[in-house]
Amino acid sequence: MITAEQKPLKEIIEYISPYDRILLVGCNECVTVCAAGGRKEVGLLASALNLNCLKQGRTIDIKEITLERQCDPEYVEELVSEIDRADAILSMACGCGVQTIAERYKEKPVFPAVNTKFMGASVSQGIWAERCQGCGDCLLGITGGICPVARCSKHLLNGPCGGTSNGMCEIDPDVDCAWRLIWERLKALGMEKRYEEIMEAKDWRPAGGGGPRKIVREDLSL
């Protein structure tokens, strides 16, 4: 999923300070799962903003709404009935959601309330870690199910650098060396020989090097 973290309150307050009526929009998808921008966080942020305004001796009108999926125009359409009563929109979705709103409601300013972080998986309760960089040409089938693009600090495709220490990455003793993980996995699967096959220079076009990416599925388009 896409992970996110709420921005510092100060930054959010600066964004919305010129406005009196705010439409605060959460999303039921990824940001709900990583507890950054779901219904619950929408409520908490609204309270925090109200409280802050009270302290400053002013009031704001915050309308809370959480959409099923903010990156989908179909659900973003649901804001139509609320949009006229708002001076600005504050989105708690990932950058995809913010942009879907901006594209639909061109006359209203929209501000992000979260920083979109990475595509990651839940490691344990309250911890998410990066697992995929969307390189567009998945290598997991030849690297034992562990991604060197996302998990090696240098995106090395042909093995560990000389900086591995006790199986951990040189940049941080809490970060696993991706190539140590790959090697252990290849060994466990009896695929050690695969390691000596040279992985050729990667074509980064599918990873975004070819410009903004798009998927067109004619079988699904209207």
Binding site: S153, K154, H155, L156, L157, C161, E170, I171, M199, A201
Partner: peptide, 26 residues
């Protein structure tokens, strides 16, 4: 491949790593 930018005086720089050292040799 080179030391990670983290260790230098521009830790905010984007490491390129378009190739790795094996691919550079190639």
């Amino acid at each position: 491949s080179g030391d990670h930018p983290k260790f230098g005086d521009h830790p905010m720089a984007k490491g390129v790593f378009d190739l790795d050292s094996v691919q550079l040799v190639q």
